[in-house]
């Protein structure tokens, strides 16, 4: 029993279909709970006042915007090496979800930035690398749509994904590489230093869990749809070929 058995489209669909409602349901519970908790039951920040509450949307979406690209990178590498179609389709399915995460992060950041920094947008390294990441998402989706042959499209988009991972890394670590920027350093990090008080931190963790589950659920759902679409296209082609063969015979 190997993990690679799930690369079989039929096995993947059978395994994933009963899981999807649970994952999405759990995501909804986490998101609703964390947003109600965060918005109504946490105090105001000592400098930002109530504007701090946007953290419950901004941080998880920015996190998922970057992690979605890494998930696409892993899926693309599996496709390039092992040629599992489900892997290529999972990368394709994740792109629009990741793109929306970038949009949420940029929009909430702008709404926070106007009262706090005094501007909606600044050409700061972190903000700029996020914008480039957004353009990479658009380019990735456009490339999938532009190439007719499915395997060629998967190959080309995989290479684009590898190149784009540079900007996914940059957008995560821009605040470390270029210390003279406008965007603050990472509030959440794995080092011991604590930047976020517990009262904000716990609802934020639940919100992050909600975003992770939402991403997972949507990607599974969309991958299943992509598999079904591809199977339908294959059946169409077979039916056409059969029709051509039967009509071609008498003539």
């Amino acid at each position: 029993m190997s993990l690679w058995e799930y690369a079989n489209p039929k096995k993947f669909t059978e395994t994933v279909t009963p899981l999807i409602p649970w994952v999405l349901g759990l995501a909804a519970i986490c998101l609703v709970a964390s947003l109600i908790w965060g918005v109504f039951f946490t105090p105001e920040d000592y400098r930002q006042g109530a504007t701090v509450k946007i953290i419950y949307l901004h941080v998880p979406s920015a996190l998922m915007a970057i992690n979605a690209w890494f998930m696409m990178l892993v899926a693309s590498l599996i496709w390039l090496v092992r040629r599992h179609h489900v892997s290529a389709l999972a990368a394709k399915a994740a792109a629009p979800v990741g793109m929306v995460m970038v949009l949420i992060a940029i929009a909430t950041g702008a709404i926070w930035g106007k009262p706090m920094w005094g501007t909606y947008w600044a050409w700061d390294p972190r903000l700029t690398s996020f914008l480039i990441l957004f353009l990479f998402y658009l380019g990735y989706m456009a490339l999938w749509a532009a190439v007719d042959d499915a395997d060629t499209a998967a190959d080309l988009t995989s290479v684009l994904c590898i190149v784009g991972s540079v900007f996914a890394v940059l957008s995560r670590y821009a605040v470390l590489f270029w210390n003279q920027g406008l965007h603050q350093g990472a509030s959440l990090s794995l080092d011991a230093e604590e930047h976020v008080a517990d009262v904000f931190y716990y609802p934020l963790l639940v919100s992050i869990a909600g975003f992770v589950l939402l991403f997972l659920g949507l990607v599974l759902l969309r991958t299943r749809s992509e598999i079904a679409l591809r199977r339908a296209a294959a059946l169409d082609r077979r039916a056409e070929a059969r029709a051509a063969a039967t009509t071609g015979e008498p003539a």
Partner: peptide, 8 residues
């Protein structure tokens, strides 16, 4: 803004 968040 710095990366510190603390209740008022």
């Amino acid at each position: 803004h710095d990366e510190d968040y603390q209740p008022r």
